[in-house]
């Protein structure tokens, strides 16, 4: 791992003002992403993983949301507090995002090529014909057959997998330092999922990008990421390299998540394990550990005190638990 992280998030707090009060969707999240590395943000819906992704690009809808505190550095440059006009210049060029819904992520009334060329012309100053050639090349790179024809088609003429590849091609078009992929394969059917995922891994290695992969799917994390952060209720519960994380989860929540995955070829057929209880309401959080209610290892301390991640930002593995496994 090289010394300088591409992305460095420190104590990020994102809040949303709602009718019922201020919700802290992301609470003091810290992590680094190094060049040529994919870091997974894993957790259930509502755990703050998508909001973290959006915050990196400065796309938190404001109002009602805002980055309340913390720091996000992209290649050493502080993004929090940067004026929107400067932040905009970085989007699509230094950092790009791939979204969850390929069916609606593209503009239905413009051709695929039109939308791709717009970015290429804006950031790379290419002429129309140069941009077109570059777009065709990118489409070929993301595995779209007959790119010279596809480029003049409209999004509704492409399948979901194709559309997601187009968005990925758009994200790659300016060689960004960082790509944030928010559930890039969730909306696709299973076979397409595998293909697109494979493509993402291949491209990430080819372009030597740093990538943040937001997903609820531990299987996807295992296949694509080098490290992962397990998030719960806006906080990081555990962060570790993939190998140790899957082999020896330390946070009871991670362990619970892993136990609830089906395993192919398991000798004995058993019911899948379930984590009992519900995710607490973000408006009405317990004083202590947010997972305490559902935790088999809970004791009095867990109810009264909120555990922070152990170690420091440089530690290879961190866990926020008083009684780690």
């Amino acid at each position: 791992m090289s010394a300088e992280p591409i992305l460095s998030v420190r104590d990020l707090v994102v809040e949303f003002r709602t009718e019922h009060g201020v919700v802290r969707a992301v609470d003091r999240v810290s992590f680094d992403v190094f060049p040529n590395e994919t870091v997974g943000l894993v957790g259930e819906s509502g755990c703050g993983k998508t909001v973290t992704g959006l915050a990196i690009l400065g796309l938190i809808p404001s109002p009602p949301g805002r980055i309340a505190s913390g720091s996000i550095r992209l290649a050493g440059r502080e993004l929090v507090g940067l004026p929107e006009s400067e932040l905009r210049q970085l989007r699509g060029r230094d950092m790009a995002m791939v979204f969850q819904e390929p069916m609606t992520a593209l503009n239905p009334v413009f051709t695929v090529g039109n939308q791709m060329m717009d970015i290429l012309r804006r950031y790379k100053g290419l002429s129309r014909s140069q941009a077109r050639a570059a777009a065709i090349e990118l489409l070929a790179k993301v595995g779209i057959p007959a790119p010279a024809q596809r480029i003049d088609e409209y999004p509704h003429q492409l399948s979901g997998g194709m559309r997601q590849r187009v968005v990925i091609a758009m994200a790659l078009s300016c060689d960004p330092k960082l790509i944030v992929a928010d559930e890039p394969t969730t909306a696709l059917d299973v076979t397409t999922q595998a293909q697109v995922l494979e493509q993402i891994v291949r491209l990430q290695q080819e372009f030597r990008m740093a990538m943040v992969l937001v997903t609820h799917d531990l299987g996807v994390v295992a296949e694509t990421c080098q490290r992962a952060l397990v998030m719960y209720c806006g906080r990081v519960a555990e962060q570790a390299d993939i190998g140790p994380l899957f082999a020896h989860p330390r946070h009871p929540y991670t362990a619970g998540l892993l136990r609830s995955l089906p395993r192919v070829g398991e000798a004995e057929k058993q019911d899948l394990a379930v984590i009992p209880g519900m995710v607490p309401d973000l408006l009405d959080l317990p004083a202590g550990c947010r997972f305490a209610e559902r935790c088999p290892r809970r004791d009095a301390r867990c109810d009264g005190e909120l555990p922070d991640l152990d170690g420091d930002a440089a530690s290879p593995a961190r866990v926020a638990c008083f009684h780690p496994l």
Partner: peptide, 22 residues
């Protein structure tokens, strides 16, 4: 409020252009 507008913003389309083009 549609998704494709969010995509456009995520790719740095300036606000005025967002309105008249996207």
């Amino acid at each position: 409020n549609r998704d494709h507008v969010r995509t456009a913003r995520a790719f740095g389309v300036p606000p005025a252009k967002l309105l008249y083009r996207n």
